[in-house]
């Protein structure tokens, strides 16, 4: 299916950013954002993920949503590299406000300050926020 999509848009590459600002599990938004990210990998676009505000909780280590009989999707962020999705930006201020450091995250990320996050957002052509 992915090959068929790719053939439809030869050479067309847009800068896509997935903006994650909500905590996981309480609502479905974090999981559904990740679903679109995974599909987007098939289209060979320039994809980046931004985690800010409560979105940084999506990457918190030690999650086990199975106790709620829900899908435990946090480990999937570690698989993104295998899909060539490697631009994961986490906002420093958002981490600090929540008493977290990169040691608390399930995956290696690039920590950026708010000014850099602002600049990254401004560079995008398609922004998906859920």
């Amino acid at each position: 299916m992915s090959d068929e999509f790719e053939d439809d848009f030869p050479g067309e590459v847009k800068r896509f950013m997935f903006v994650n600002r909500k905590a996981p599990h309480g609502t479905i938004y974090a999981l559904e954002s990740l679903e679109v990210v995974l599909i987007s990998a098939a289209f060979d676009q320039d994809v980046s993920l931004a985690f800010l505000d409560d979105g940084v909780f999506q990457l918190r280590k030690g999650q086990n949503a199975n106790v709620l009989e829900m899908k435990n999707f946090a480990p999937t962020y570690r698989a993104l590299e295998g899909y060539d999705i490697e631009k994961l930006y986490v906002e420093r201020e958002s981490l600090e406000e929540r008493g977290m450091t990169t040691d608390d995250l399930v995956v290696p990320v690039e920590v950026v300050d708010r000014a850099r996050m602002t600049a990254l957002m401004a560079e995008q052509e398609v922004v998906m926020s859920f």
Partner: peptide, 21 residues
């Protein structure tokens, strides 16, 4: 249809406008 249709319109359209909670 599949989520690919969303990514596809993101590529094809000049603007993607989101209405959510």
């Amino acid at each position: 249809s599949g989520l690919g249709q969303l990514v596809e319109i993101g590529i094809q359209a000049d603007r993607l406008v989101t209405f959510g909670d």
